[in-house]
Nucleic acid binder design. Sequence first.
RNA 1: GCCCCCAUCGUCUAGCGGCCCAGGACACUGGCCUUUCAAGCCAGAGGCAGGGGUUCGAAUCCCCUUGGGGGCGCCA
Length: 472
Amino acid sequence: MTVVRVRFAPSPTGELHVGGARTALFNWLFARKMGGSFILRIEDTDVERSSKIYERSIMESLKWCGLLWDEGPDVGGNHGPYRQSERVKEGLYRSYAERLVESRQAYYAIYDPEDREKQIGISDTYPEREIQHGCSVTVKFRIPKGGYTEFNDILRGRIRFENSSLEDFVILKSNGFPTYNFAVVVDDHLMGISHVIRGEDHISNTPKQILLYEAFSWEIPEYLHLPLILGNDRTPLSKRHGATSVEYFRSKGFLSTALMNYLALLGWNVGEEEQIFLIDDVIERFEPHDLSNKNVIFDHQKLEWVNGKHLRMLAREQVRDAFKDFLAYTGRKEYLEKVEMDDFAEDVIEICRQKVNTLEQLADFAYPFFFDDYEYENNYVEKYLQDEKAGVIISEALKLFENLKDWTVEGVEKVVRGLPEHLEISKKKVFQTLRGAVMGRLVTPGLFETISVLGKKRVLERLRRTMKMVEG
RNA sequence: GCCCCCAUCGUCUAGCGGCCCAGGACACUGGCCUUUCAAGCCAGAGGCAGGGGUUCGAAUCCCCUUGGGGGCGCCA
């Protein structure tokens, strides 16, 4: 049995995209299931576009997702370095490229000094003279004439390409950096990668890579190409569809457990009609063959539904921690302090999470619990506060609450329930008037829970304040 | 243009020749519950892209068409 070693190899030219996160997730899942290793390799061979900022951001997102790697640029490992730019410095790719030149499987391509695009000749030996004349030079791989190249894809079976449909391609750029197709092969081989799990957009690259493996007489890994994630207009998911990066979902108040759950759901049928799960609980059930090979459309609504489920399913401390992470991540310092300081925060979260789907919604929904500067909705003012009965309702409630000792949900309920009949005012009017009086809005958690959690002091203060508005 | 991949409700999927006049989930519609809004529960509407084969029998196998996606860079 071969040791499973898989990798996720992002290029740091942007934030971690949900498609990338899904690729990373399935790689990670497979490694965990098989007791193998999950490796993070940074493919920063595009000097122009790569940046450290994105590298850090991708790693941060991956960590937030819970997709931790066993080997990588920060944690090290026996197959490093894990940044291609660092491997370039070791002369790695150049020496392998030269090996191919020596065996005539690659050659030097020489370009016009005036026009870098224009190839003016080729050479089997290092074209020293041309270089002195200002020509730039690359190393190109020679596609064998005739025949075909085929490989097995775990999801699709054998895929065959006629070699005649392939063209010689650059493996070493004129700046000495390897191209993608060359670097992956060299690195995957040197890093002992057993299974290559990546996006479907790489299918067409695979024959070139196979040819490279064959040129080196290296063992070819197993391949699995994942279908792509598209937007609702069936074009590849991009910024045009609004949300795409993991960062975005984090800042929008999604839970990482829910994001992973949804991403897994996208193309993987966990079985038994199961939709909601924690990724850790489902590792054993992961089977690459079960993955769908059909492109999928990203469904924000379902993600939100999954998120709501997780919000209600997780332990309350977990939700509290996630909420704090969200507040910190989105820079809401004051709010974060409140949640950290107020001992009733967990109770607030508990009664609010029943009604919302995201942490962002939670922040809005719970706001009046933590802050006194909330505003009174126009709706409430016009419909209830300006009603002639408002004063009676609030003053009567105030009187009863002032004397109330039992501030439990049951105790509060008893008092509030008695009011409509006692005042001979409709239940709805009484409840809504009170709801708005203590929260400023008409949509809140259950009234009794709200009043109970708010506590006697706050409730009395707020009732008095609202009363002043009625009178004044 | 050439090469490759894919095709079940709007979306994600179950189905791998008879159990399917196609099952589940999200969304949608209606109802129940109810102090608001949700949640929850119940019900409903909605699909095998089209055409040829193969077979006693096809969503399932084969071919063609159509449609969607990917690739053909000194990007990854």
